[in-house]
């Protein structure tokens, strides 16, 4: 299961809307225990696949190292990643599984649906846990998303797509 604050959940979806029609990407920092990846912070990352940003993403290793240091300073770990699928389902692709190497981490995917005016709107968001013990037996499994709302009185969106 992936546990995430509502504000972080909304922030990563908003990131996908901002970069539409290109894919966005970022890192989930938190702690893993008892089969749950609990997100404490999300960190936006740049998509280095500028040659094909509408259907590919990649985070620079240098940026990943910087984010890993940031996590270490805050006594957190990298527990997952997020990216968007512009005008494609919020399901992992064969590219996603081929290039996923962080076993035990969560991979959040948000479908961003194009609007006639050219903007993108965050649609379905799913999370997949990368299971297995090696490159040879790795596989994605859909996982439950638990979204925490800090302030019960906070207004909820009237429309959740």
């Amino acid at each position: 299961m992936l546990r995430i604050q509502f504000r972080d959940y909304e922030a990563l979806r908003a990131h996908g809307e901002e970069t539409y029609p290109h894919e966005c990407c970022g890192v989930l920092l938190g702690r893993a225990s008892d089969g749950t990846n609990a997100v404490h912070q999300i960190v936006r990352a740049g998509n280095t696949r500028t040659d094909s940003a509408h259907n590919r993403y990649q985070i620079s290793p240098v940026e990943l190292i910087r984010i890993q240091r940031q996590a270490r300073t805050a006594s957190l770990d990298i527990v997952g990643f997020y990216h968007s699928h512009p005008d494609h389902p919020a399901q992992w692709s064969s590219t996603d599984i081929a290039e996923a190497h962080w076993l035990g981490c969560s991979y959040i995917i948000t479908r961003i649906a194009g609007r006639p005016e050219g903007q993108g709107k965050a649609d379905v968001t799913n999370s997949f846990l990368l299971l297995g013990t090696s490159e040879e037996d790795k596989h994605f499994a859909g996982e439950a998303l638990e979204i925490l709302i800090d302030e019960p009185s906070a207004p909820l969106p009237t429309e959740v797509l």
Partner: peptide, 15 residues
């Protein structure tokens, strides 16, 4: 020395 697996993917699919 930092070991860091790559992170990449995308909706482009062989499918």
């Amino acid at each position: 020395l930092t070991i860091i697996p790559s992170i990449a993917g995308g909706c482009l699919s062989a499918d």
